[in-house]
């Protein structure tokens, strides 16, 4: 059996109600295991429960029903809180609201400082973490002079410096421009590949989900689909029905099939899609 880093069992959660309203159930029984070293994308529209799910992965929220284990540790056990948060780091949506310090290196050092890491080792960790996200030339910069993508990479470095097993990106690309998104995605892909860090990417962008090993689709507080991108993304009708988009390549291939082309619908990348079309065209000719 594969090694599990995060395990959720029948997880339920609802936010406290405003006066006179019934509490809004955000999660209605989610069971999910995330393998160590994998890259999992959690897809869903706003209000699908995907962010609430993410916040259970490092005990920012605690389950009202069911259980969550991080590396075998129950998130409800307060004595384990620091260790859980060290192992699962979280990058948030707004790059400005997670940077604590006025100088890049001091911000990256914030986590290790809290953990009581000796000074000399903090220095080593900070330098290594900045290198891992490709920001080593910005050590003494002020964060407010950086672009959105750079700020998010600093936030990632701040987590790397705590030597985590898993990084959860809670819609961390939603506020970035295309180049910022690319920067962040390339960084987490590399960390996943080279350092074996587990990545959980919460997003509503289909093209981002295509990068993962596994896609979990959330809707109405439940995990409604779970599989590889190649299995999930071509399910055009179902995805549309819950307010998500499909990549244009998939839409095109569906259309071409209707027109009598013999093409697969799971060609996700531009190259694959073009290849499939060329093959279909030459087969006819």
């Amino acid at each position: 059996m594969a090694d599990t880093i995060i395990k959720m069992e029948d997880l339920a959660f609802s936010y406290p109600a405003e006066e006179g309203n019934v509490p809004l159930a955000a999660l209605k029984g989610v069971s999910l295991s995330i393998e160590r070293g994998s890259f999992v994308a959690v897809l869903g529209h706003n209000g699908s429960g995907k962010s609430t799910l993410a916040k259970h992965m490092n005990a920012v929220l605690l389950p009202l029903g069911g259980k969550v284990w991080v590396d075998g540790m129950d998130t409800c056990d307060e004595n384990l809180l620091l260790e859980i948060r060290r192992r699962v780091g979280m990058v948030f949506q707004n790059p400005d609201n997670q940077i604590v310090a006025n100088v890049v290196e001091e911000d990256v050092a914030f986590g290790p400082e809290n953990l009581g890491v000796p000074t000399k080792e903090i220095r080593e960790r900070v330098d290594a973490a900045l290198k891992a996200v490709g920001m080593e030339d910005f050590v003494l910069q002020a964060p407010h002079h950086l672009s959105g993508g750079q700020k998010q990479r600093i936030a990632i470095a701040g987590i790397i410096a705590m030597e985590p097993a898993c990084i959860v990106l809670d819609e961390s690309t939603a506020m970035l421009d295309p180049s910022g998104r690319r920067e962040v995605l390339e960084t987490v892909q590399r960390l996943n590949r080279e350092k074996g860090i587990t990545i959980v990417l919460i997003t509503h962008h289909m093209d981002e989900a295509a990068l993962a090993d596994r896609v979990v689709v959330m809707d109405g507080g439940r995990a409604v689909m779970d599989g590889t991108p190649r299995e999930i993304l071509p399910r055009m009708e179902e995805l549309r029905a819950i307010g998500l988009d499909v990549p244009h390549t998939v839409e095109l291939l569906y259309g071409l099939r209707e027109d009598g082309f013999d093409v697969p619908v799971d060609a996700l990348s531009v190259e694959e899609c073009a290849g499939a079309i060329v093959a279909a065209l030459s087969a006819k000719a």
Partner: peptide, 12 residues
Amino acid sequence: VAELRKALSALK
């Protein structure tokens, strides 16, 4: 998507 689909179908 519609345009490319049309162009490809015409080609075929």
